[in-house]
Structure formats: C-alpha cells, structure tokens
Design a protein around this nucleic acid. Structure first.
Length: 215
DNA sequence: TGCCAGGCCCTCTTTAGGGCCTT
C-alpha cells in the first residue's frame, strides 16, 4: 500500500509550507535491547507497497538476553545469526546511508512505526547522529507517525483495551502474530493501517517532526 | 556475579504505584 495524504487548510491552501502530500513508509527496528539511549540496531526494515528495504548489522554491544529470546538474533564472533542462521550484514553507516537513499525515492516520506516516538525514532536518530546523518534525515522526511498514539484515537479502536502491535494485528487482521522480524512487523503494520484507513486529519494530529523527537 | 529502560497513562491518585509499549 502506498498511502498518500493531501493536507489542506479550510481556505484550500496547503496547511504546511512544505509538501502538499505525504507517502507513508512503514518501518521497524530490531535492537540489542530496550535501552533507547544505549542499544544497537541489528535489523532495519521498511516497506511501502511493493518496495521494501531490509538490512542487518552486527551490533557493537552484545544482544540482551530477552532481545535474543524474542527476536532470535545472536552474535557469534563477527557474525549475526537469526535462529542460528548466519545473516548477510552491512556496516551500520552503509545501512543508514542506503536507508536515506531508499527514502529519497518517495515524495515526502513519513516514517510510520508502532511506538515510534518513544522507541524507533530516538534510536534511529541517535544512530544517524553518530555518522553526522541526522540533518540529512531532516531534509528527507516531513516527520514520524506513531501508530500507537494514532490507534488510541481511532473510532475503530474504541473497544480495544490493548494496543500492542501483536494484539492489534490479531484483533483487526484476524491472524496470530508474533513476528519480531523488522520486515514482517513493517508489513503487518502496513496491513493494519490499510484496514484502519485513518483520516488525513488524524494522521496530521499524530505527525511529529524530527526536531520534536527527544533522544 | 549481578545487572539488565524509561516515560506516559490510569486510577482503588495527587505525600503513589503499577501497567503498558518497544527489543
């Protein structure tokens, strides 16, 4: 699904001086743990319709026990394994540069993830800053859309009491879901948003610029 | 060996505490 939003003011002029439409890019990270200020990315994935991005990296620090348990990632020597299978990895800097190139292929790409405000965005921005690439992301994307916050504002979720991605996928898509693979999670989130079909007003309400992310 | 996040939100709250959400 390539989602496009056309924001406009009551007067018919664009609500923001910048882009007149957004493309929703669903993305996800798998990391060495939940420590936002210190964990490393091991998988960076994104999807928009038929176009996907997927990169694996060997982390500088060890995988946390619980992170390994839920994602299946382990590190042996200089290799990243997923469920014991060696993965093709690239240096973090290359993955981030390639990700920016991927994003440049869309018009006004908005990065969408579940709990992106508190987890994915701060980690992504911290990683980019390490290679002086943070400003480049600011130039490429209008902002981030957090589906955790969005879901709590959706009429379709008025009876929902749990808002984890796992629960929402099971509730709305009717299938068990325990992926914890960044690409699969991104695809599931895209399907979820396709079902929700949130209004442009709701999307704008939960859109945050890079400058608004605390990390 | 022992450690293993943090901020928001809700309520049986506010002089607090527990659950949620991400890996």
């Amino acid at each position: 699904m390539q989602s496009v939003l056309h924001p406009s003011s009551p007067g018919g002029r664009p609500a923001r001086p910048a882009p007149s439409e957004y493309t929703l890019i669903f993305f996800d990270l798998e990391t060495t743990g939940l420590d936002v200020s210190g964990c490393d990315i091991v998988q960076l994935s994104a999807v928009c319709g038929e176009r996907t991005f997927n990169a694996y990296m060997v982390p500088r620090r060890s995988m946390g026990y619980s992170a390994s348990f839920v994602t299946g990632f382990t590190v042996e020597g200089d290799s990243l394994l997923q469920y014991g299978r060696p993965m093709m990895t690239v240096p973090l800097q290359d993955a981030l540069a390639d990700f920016l190139t991927f994003l440049r292929g869309f018009h006004s790409p908005v990065l969408v993830a579940h709990n992106v405000l508190r987890f994915d965005a701060p980690i992504l921005l911290r990683s980019l800053r390490g290679f002086s690439l943070q400003n480049e992301l600011e130039r490429v994307i209008p902002g981030f859309l957090d589906t955790l916050l969005l879901s709590k504002d959706l009429p379709a979720c008025s009876r929902v009491r749990k808002f984890s991605l796992q629960y929402l996928v099971k509730y709305f898509l009717g299938k068990p879901f325990e992926a914890h693979d960044a690409l699969e999670d991104s695809k599931a989130l895209e399907q979820l948003c396709h079902v929700w079909n949130p209004s442009p007003m709701l999307i704008r309400r939960h859109l945050y610029t890079v400058q608004q992310i605390h990390f």
